[in-house]
Design a protein around this nucleic acid. Structure first.
Lengths: 151, 151
DNA sequence: AGTTACGTAATAAATGGTGTTACATGAAAC
DNA sequence: GTTTCATGTAACACCATTTATTACGTAACT
């Protein structure tokens, strides 16, 4: 299966935006993330609707964060992206008439539900501010707005 | 992304086989699972190599379980299937040179690792025997080998 | 020998994220 | 007011992966 990297991408983008004191254009973000500006706009659309970012057109336009970093959790972002599927595995039939399959689904579902619950708890417990802080703690000399790409 | 239903499918098949006192053909299993016999053989191949099932050719051939139900865990089956990806989400770059992205990956990775660990623990704790037992507890009057499909 | 059933490769279909183009809209600069 | 910059969005091709199907080979039983 192809893995969905929107959450990872968007977090990356948000942290760059957070450390930049002016709006960042989709082109600039796309360059950071090695993707296409349209992909950036498409991905950010949900965050804009959720009030996490704001976009401005025209000269000196672009994207800015419009909420307090310490109040934005990974969970919020996951939601804003439309709650993409977490697991790559699923039931073959969601409402099987076969009783054996019902038992299998119930048992498997319990395990997945627990794992999902834990993941969502972790997501709820991590704010953008924490990741930004963790970054500056690890690399105090780096300037966030100086984006360094390796070879 | 397309969701992988092999684990669910194979569990379903195994429980039917467990309750059947003769080998079940790929065709019979495929009918249960509403799929194609070749898919059954392909999916079962890993389990055969892992010693969980055995296949026999020719007349009255088919698939039989070759291990103790109480010693086969969901984890064993997941392994036998080649450990398919658990999460539908992933990092955009696994070894980014961008320090911001490294911080994001680290934080996200922690959450996913924890969830995966929990899921694997749950998988390790569930045996086929338990699911079979749970089934008979829930539906004592049903005969497992009588496979009922709804409309 | 013929039938049954697995073994496996090759190929197509379906799905869903990603990349790209094209065109429209709005805001700032001149 | 026209130009330029930037987002908004639809449309479409691309790609990776599971699933479905066909085809042909092999082993075992009758």
């Amino acid at each position: 299966m192809k893995r969905d990297s929107r959450l990872s991408s968007v977090l990356h983008a948000l942290l760059h935006m957070a450390a930049f004191d002016r709006p960042m254009t989709s082109d600039a973000l796309a360059q950071c993330m090695r993707t296409h500006p349209v992909v950036v706009r498409r991905t950010m659309a949900g965050l804009r609707e959720a009030g996490i970012v704001r976009s401005e057109k025209g000269h000196h336009g672009g994207w800015v964060i419009s909420a307090d970093l310490s109040r934005i959790t990974l969970r919020d972002i996951h939601e804003a992206l439309g709650e993409p599927a977490i697991f790559a595995m699923g039931h073959r039939n969601d409402n099987p008439s076969c009783l054996v399959e019902q038992a299998v689904n119930a048992r498997l579902g319990d395990a997945f539900d627990e794992a999902e619950k834990l993941l969502m708890e972790r997501f709820s417990g991590v704010t953008l501010a924490e990741i930004a802080k963790e970054f500056t703690a690890r690399y105090p000399k780096e300037r966030l707005e100086t984006h360094t790409h390796g070879t």
